[in-house]
């Protein structure tokens, strides 16, 4: 117990961040599983209902239960974030490992390309993709996923470049270990701490990006809902029903805060 307190004091970001994430996940999962309301079911009598035991967070402009919608929206947002980061990490590792380990011309070309992609503000690139592919959950995932590859590739590449110069890698090479074995058995486990913290920060960015896109109306399309969409709907009623916008916005902010604290904490540990 004392030990735990000590650890928390030493790295409060990590534990507070993890706690926020766990609580938010619990709220969202509870809502998805236990909420008796269909998130899309409208109820004219419950328009903008105040929070009550029946509707813990009240209702929106169509009388839909806000908690049920928030859970489903949050789940969608998180699902998109996970899928996006997954694409980014997997391709990032493959590209980063190859370029960082081998270097050379291919590395130069890919990194030049990487720089060009990273030179774009991410939201702008997302807009390009969306205007090409069209909007919708699946297309958002693909767009954001591709967008996330360069930043992960860059991190993995620099770690591989650093590690491939270390003595234990040299010594493995001297024993006759093959390149693939060195890359994935010897080096990869060593970069996991760094990868972990950047993955968590990636979640943070993915949640933000998805929410921004859906807020602008070019992300998730109705009937599915996401937190960004809900916030843009809520903005219309900001004057009469500010709680709608505030609850939705705070949910997004807390998820982002949780991931960014956790990411910072992990970085400190790495």
């Amino acid at each position: 117990m004392k030990n735990l307190m000590f650890r928390i004091r030493k790295n409060p970001e990590m534990y507070i961040g993890a706690a926020i994430i766990v609580v938010m996940l619990a709220i969202i999962i509870c809502g998805v599983i236990f909420s008796p309301y269909d998130p899309d079911a409208m109820d004219a009598s419950a328009k903008f209902a105040d929070p009550s035991p029946a509707h813990p967070m009240g209702c929106d402009n169509f009388g839909r239960d806000l908690y049920a919608r928030l859970s489903i929206g949050g789940a969608t947002t998180l699902f998109i974030a996970v899928a996006t980061v997954f694409i980014g990490v997997i391709f990032g590792i493959i590209i980063g490992a190859l370029t960082g380990y081998y270097g050379g011309v291919v590395d130069e070309i890919l990194m030049r390309f990487n720089d060009a992609v990273l030179a774009f503000p991410s939201i702008l690139l997302a807009l390009v993709f969306i205007s090409l592919f069209g909007s919708g959950t699946f297309k958002v995932i693909i767009s954001l996923g591709i967008l996330f590859i360069p930043s992960f590739a860059r991190i993995v590449r620099s770690e591989f470049m650093r590690c491939s110069k270390l003595d234990y890698v040299r010594s493995a090479r001297l024993m006759g270990a093959g390149d693939l074995r060195i890359m994935f058995v010897h080096i990869l486990p060593n970069i996991i701490p760094v990868l972990l913290s950047s993955t968590v920060i990636g979640f943070n960015n993915a949640v933000l990006a998805e929410a921004s896109m859906s807020f602008l109306g070019i992300g998730v399309q109705p009937p599915s809902s996401s937190l960004g969409r809900m916030l843009s709907e809520a903005q219309a009623f900001l004057f009469s029903e500010p709680s709608y916008a505030i609850i939705t916005g705070v949910t997004i902010a807390l998820i982002v805060l949780g991931f960014s604290l956790l990411g910072d904490g992990l970085k400190k540990n790495a």
């Binding site: 929410a211 843009s232 900001l238 916008a245 916005g249 902010a253 982002v256």
Partner: peptide
């Protein structure tokens, strides 16, 4: 600062609209 950093810009815009505007 840490809290402000986590507020998505569009939500911060809405908050500013609500507080300073409304």
């Amino acid at each position: 600062g840490q809290l402000v950093m986590s507020i998505p810009p569009f939500f911060l815009g809405i908050l500013v609209t609500y507080v300073f505007g409304m």
